[in-house]
Amino acid sequence: MINFRYIRTTALKTALGLINKEKQSTFIAGGTNLVDLMKKGVTTPEKLIDISNLPLKEIQLNNNVLQIGALTSNSAVAENAVVKAKFPLLTMAINAGASAQLRNMATVGGNMMQRTRCPYFYDITMPCNKRQPNSGCAAIGGFNRMHAIFGTSETCIAVHPSDMCVGLAALDAKVRIAGAKGERTINFTDFHRLPGDTPEKDNHLQKGELILGIEIPSNNFNKNFHYLKIRDRSSYAFALVSVAAALDIKGGIITEVRLAMGGVAHKPWRLIQAESFLKGKAATKANFEQAAKMEMNTAKSFGENDFKLKMVPNAIIEALTLAKDKA
């Protein structure tokens, strides 16, 4: 690993001051992705600003909004009593990702900031527009079994690897962000971005900004929910396709529904069309099938990931069915 300078602080103001002062610096919290990227030479910061001791580790339910500090560990969120009781889809999504060790280390903010696991992004001898703009995309026409089918561009077909983020996208979360000019709050679904012609940017966080935390409004999705993850082994593998499904069913009719997917796009992929189709309809297999089908209009595969065109609608139907049938 190329050496770097290191500094730590317990104060938000100092952290923001430092990141704005030093152009080649980067924040480190859990480090589970960043340290790996630095070992591989994919990322070579000159200075790390350790924010793991900043006071952003609270989980609180205030006025029907769940607030989660950005430095809360993934396992602390998944195991939290309020999260388990009121937002169990989030617990299920988090526990579908990584391993127990990594979930103890990884933070909420860090999980959001993790980079794609596209093998060409990790291999510094290969072209990759995300790692090195304008160098080309080796995944298009290469090994692209894990890659995106929605929202791709000619420059990048990588996917965002998080499970937690798929759950947060489904649950209408918001992201609180601090910067030199103060605070701002954006929708979680607007945090990550599609590659377009600037795939080097994973999200809309500006240089010098820091994620403060996540807010999730209360909902009625603690009965009929499911996080379905399809992967090459039964645990500890990235998703080929994953679906977060949440239903509020009254008398057989779907009064509210949320659907989001992982493993299919450069960002957690919210299924707005399917949601608006299902709202107010009966929770039947026929309706689930129709909802899944309409989402496939914009899908485009790249050879090795052609199977996702079939797997995605099946996964949507399966997740909705498991959510509906949850006792």
């Binding site: 589970t32 350790d50 990594l102 103890n104």
Partner: peptide, 19 residues
């Protein structure tokens, strides 16, 4: 490389010693 840090299991290979 699993060790416990303050009682919690972590991967020591992905943890910078200084943190």
């Amino acid at each position: 490389c699993t060790v416990h840090v303050d009682g919690q299991r972590v991967n020591a290979c992905l943890s910078l010693a200084v943190t």
